[in-house]
């Protein structure tokens, strides 16, 4: 049946075209002759056109960044870029090694990392604690969830003036700002996961007459873990966001302080070193969380395989 159909189609095509390979035909401009149109439609009927993206090239993702750096390098080498606006890659590398050898970069990075880590720690603890309180008891839900949903609508950074008023401009304020942002992210996702526990699993637990503690340990906690990790990853991002902001406020140390100082002296190379440091922190911490997540959710990992 289909054989006769295709034979009928080829019959309508003008002589010469049926033998041409499809690839060549695709490269040709759209046919203008009246006789070519039916042949074109007949050929498309044979093989569907690919609509998805093509085959992946190994390390293809690196092409964009490498090209960007190359353009940067080239334009500063050719003198198109004013070093006061943007230093060249060579200067940045030299500055970075300079900052490392004097210890300035490590010292500031350590201070920044410590702030982020402390904020993350307190934020995660508070977020999980509040989520557990709100997610596992009705009264907890009524007391905790409302205020936190309101807090969610107010960016932590908008609370900065108030927090400076209360806590001053020291480390306490900085860590608190970071922790607030982290806590909200962790809370929202963990709470949603806790309340979204599959009702069928709850039913199973009841039918097996699990005790409350076993139920929490074997059903609720593993069920809520994926949601917690979503919150944790968002929390890590928000920790670095908070870090960058608080380090602009009367800081006397940290990567942000280093960059702020460089701005005063128009040292764009130092600013870029700071940006790269922030980028590495963000990327590395996200990668770390992903590794932990994969370990903790190994049952899921095999599912995606």
């Amino acid at each position: 049946m289909s054989e006769t159909l295709s034979r009928a189609r080829t019959a309508t095509a003008p002589p010469g075209t049926p033998g041409a390979p499809p690839r060549e035909r695709a490269d040709r401009p759209a046919p203008t002759g009246s006789g070519a149109a039916p042949a074109e439609s007949a050929r498309q009927g044979h093989r569907p056109r690919r609509l998805g993206p093509g085959r992946a090239v190994p390390f293809g993702r690196l092409i964009g960044p490498v090209l960007l750096v190359a353009v940067w390098w080239l334009s500063s080498a050719l003198g198109y870029l004013d070093p006061r606006i943007l230093s060249g890659p060579g200067t940045v590398l030299a500055t970075a090694s300079d900052l490392v050898s004097t210890g300035r970069l490590q010292d500031n990075a350590l201070v920044s990392l410590q702030r982020a880590a402390l904020g993350l720690l307190f934020g995660v603890l508070a977020g999980v604690l509040l989520a557990v309180v709100a997610g596992l008891s009705r009264s907890g839900e009524y007391l905790v969830d409302g205020p936190l949903q309101i807090k969610r609508a107010i960016p932590s950074l908008a609370l900065l003036p108030l927090l400076i008023l209360w806590l001053g401009i020291g480390e306490q304020m900085k860590v608190t700002v970071i922790a607030l942002g982290v806590a909200v992210n962790v809370y929202i996702n963990t709470y949603a996961a806790l309340t979204g526990i599959d009702g069928r699993h709850v039913q199973l637990a009841e039918s097996l007459r699990l005790g409350r503690w076993t139920f929490l340990r074997k059903v609720v906690a593993p069920g809520a873990l994926p949601g917690f990790f979503v919150g944790l990853r968002l929390g890590v991002t928000s920790a670095f966001l908070g870090l960058i902001v608080v380090e602009q406020v009367n800081a006397t140390s940290g990567i942000g302080y280093m960059m702020f100082q460089a701005q005063q002296y128009a040292q764009s190379d130092v600013i870029i070193v700071g940006l790269v440091a922030y980028g590495i922190f963000g990327y590395a911490s996200d990668a770390l969380v992903r590794i932990i997540e994969r370990r903790a959710l190994s049952w899921r990992h095999t599912l995606a395989r």
Binding site: H201, A205, L208, T214, K218, P222, G223, W299, R300
Partner: peptide, 20 residues
């Protein structure tokens, strides 16, 4: 027992069987 097996996906088979 239910229409679906209702095994907890994060517990291995034996742990599912002896759950609780």
């Amino acid at each position: 027992s239910f229409q679906d097996s209702r095994l907890l996906p994060w517990l291995r088979v034996l742990d599912n069987v002896v759950l609780g």
